[in-house]
Nucleic acid binder design. Structure first.
Lengths: 154, 154
DNA sequence: ATTTTGGTTCTGTAATTACAGAATTAAAAA
DNA sequence: TTTTTAATTCTGTAATTACAGAACCAAAAT
């Protein structure tokens, strides 16, 4: 299955996307390959061949991606290969985690506020406002996601 | 102004937080210093001394942090120094940008869907569902932030 | 006019990252 | 039993990152 030029370009684009999120380049490209691949699943060797990388790199990448829940695999009867794929079932909770990661800063800011003296009332006030805002977002994100699930179900 | 041990620890913690977001360690520690500092503003030299880093490192960091809008400075009459600080006014739009960054993936996924054939209806369907979800979140985030502003104003 | 202050820019480097390649292993096939 | 397949693990390395240090520069103070 030779990939089209367009698909190859997309894999690179997806790779860059995940690289921006702190992942190693190859890790993101593997996710990209799974996304654009017709079967939406790839074997170890297919990754090696399509992306032109070493087996060691693929092995490390798959170990990491599986450990972090980004990738899973299934097997087929009478076939020794593993078929790696994206676990698409629960993307909502994935997204929720990502969104909540941003508001994690709340905890640190709370500590900052405790540690700060009273000499700079203006700044302390801004900080408190910011904290209120973060807390608001933190509370509303799960509500938002629940709202989506409701709407979808109806 | 000698910083307390607790504040120093907090600076490191904040540094790690921003390092996780892809920033250089020092960049995050400078933001941390500004957060815990009583005056909530620091001079170039104060950064050098409190964080025990070179002037070049501080210069580079401040250039970057100002370019990306994370840091600003003001001056004082009869004082040549710049007083660097966090621009706390518009943290809501900062947060909005961060949240919207996550849903940027929508654009790439849309391209993926266009490029995929019809052979894997199941996967394509999951992809479409995921896209719907991302679009929903993308639409609702600005609404959420507006809601906060309303509530605060009243 | 020269020195000092506040900061920048350039050059080098230790440490880390992101792999490649070879050796290795474990299970299944021949 | 030997060989093949599917993957892992270990070792090395090119490239990049995150700084330090020194030289430099411009404006203000002396």
């Amino acid at each position: 299955m030779a990939l089209s030029e367009k698909k190859r370009a997309l894999i690179e684009k997806i790779g860059v996307h995940f690289e921006f999120k702190g992942m190693q380049p190859l890790f993101g490209r593997i996710l990209g390959l799974m996304l654009v691949h017709e079967r939406a699943e790839v074997t170890f060797d297919e990754i090696v061949e399509e992306l032109n990388v070493s087996k060691s790199a693929v092995s490390n990448a798959l170990t990491f991606l599986q450990a972090t829940g980004k990738v899973a695999y299934h097997t087929k009867p009478g076939d020794r290969k593993r078929y790696f794929h994206l676990p698409m079932k629960d993307f909502t909770s994935d997204m929720e985690k990502e969104l909540m990661e941003i508001v994690k800063f709340e905890e640190v800011l709370e500590e900052v506020l405790v540690e700060r003296g009273e000499t700079n009332a203006d700044f302390n006030c801004s900080l408190k406002e910011f904290l209120n805002f973060i807390k608001f977002i933190k509370m509303e994100i799960p509500v938002l996601i629940e709202k989506y699930k409701q709407q979808k179900g109806s």
